[in-house]
């Protein structure tokens, strides 16, 4: 058993998940590939969304994959960081907006 939970080399083995369930694995990768194709949004825009989500999900594999993907597409580090701040803003906003619930509760309980 590996002594660490994450090994960068495991990212290359992602496709192997199909080996234990070919049908669902194939469906997933077909879907995944389709999602990232050029559509109403450009593949470039999708790459930046994926990078931001990779960070909010704190998935080290996804961070590696979409940082490299961004570089391959000519995305600059400034654009990448800006995308991350969108993710970070939503994360912190999601925390803070619950403050309204806290305030509601305080207002309900206090005389």
């Amino acid at each position: 058993m590996s002594k660490t939970y994450y090994d960068p080399a495991d990212l290359r083995k992602f496709g192997k998940i199909s080996e234990w369930n070919q049908e669902l694995g194939d469906k997933f990768f077909d879907y995944y590939g389709k999602v990232f194709e050029e559509g109403t949004l450009t593949a470039r825009e999708k790459s930046l969304i994926a990078l931001a989500v990779a960070h909010t999900e704190q998935c080290p594999y996804c961070i590696d994959a979409y940082t490299k993907d961004g570089l391959q597409r000519g995305i600059t580090k400034e654009e990448m960081m800006e995308a991350l701040h969108v993710g970070a803003a939503i994360k912190s906003g999601a925390t803070l907006v619950h403050g309204v619930q806290m305030m509601n509760k305080v207002n309900k309980l206090e005389m």
Partner: peptide, 8 residues
């Protein structure tokens, strides 16, 4: 890293 799509 490898180059992205040439046309894009």
């Amino acid at each position: 890293y490898l180059p992205g799509d040439q046309a894009t």
